[in-house]
């Protein structure tokens, strides 16, 4: 018997569970990731305290990400950060963030389910993203720890580089399938350009 339309969803599910592709680079949907958008004056004490409370990381510099004990803080714009934490702990982390913010004019929102996350790794990773984004991805220009918000073909996306030189790509969940197809197409075997 089919479940009624208003039945509660039993467990959270990521955008494209198990989606993966091996080509010039290894592309994989990275599953559920806790994400909190934090907007406010990045130079203010309460925002710095909130970042530390949520992730254990320092406030990231312009277009950089910082790794903490329990998560990551990523620079999104002059007044916006993205905080990463385990998916199951978002509620608790959000409480910590709000406690640290106090009465400061700032906003923290759980956006975990609004986004999709992919990992792009392997030797061709720079080239795969370079085909899709108007970004200089040469090893001199784009280094581990950097984050870049940009355009991936027709959609907005952001990516940062992990210490092992693999990329993490986020986009809106509603365009996850499009983003995965783009990455897959760019990583098709035999489609190597050899720039990076």
């Amino acid at each position: 018997m089919p479940e009624p339309m208003n039945a509660p969803i039993s467990a959270p599910i990521s955008a494209l569970p198990g989606a993966r592709f091996d080509g010039l680079a290894h592309i994989e949907e990275a599953g559920l990731q806790g994400m909190i958008t934090l907007r406010g004056d990045l130079a203010s004490k309460p925002v710095k305290a909130a970042v530390t409370a949520a992730t254990g990381a320092k406030l990231p510099a312009l277009r950089q990400g910082t790794q903490g004990k329990s998560g990551m803080a990523l620079w999104m714009s002059p007044d916006e950060l993205l905080l990463l934490c385990p998916y199951g702990e978002v509620g608790a982390v959000l409480d910590k963030v709000n406690a640290a913010l106090g009465d400061a004019p700032a906003l923290a929102v759980n956006v975990s389910d609004a986004r999709a996350l992919f990992s792009v790794s392997g030797l061709g990773a720079r080239e795969v993203l370079g085909k899709l984004c108007p970004v200089d991805l040469s090893p001199e220009a784009f280094t581990p720890g950097m984050i870049r918000r940009t355009r991936m073909a027709q959609i907005a996306a952001a990516f940062w580089m992990e210490p092992d030189q693999s990329f993490r790509v986020i986009c809106f969940r509603s365009v996850a399938a499009y983003a995965f197809d783009l990455l897959k197409d760019a990583a098709r075997p035999g489609a190597s350009v050899g720039v990076y």
Partner: peptide, 12 residues
């Protein structure tokens, strides 16, 4: 001038 990124016009 806000984030220092240099890109071509399709990003803007």
């Amino acid at each position: 001038p806000c984030c220092g990124v240099t890109a071509e016009e399709t990003e803007f």
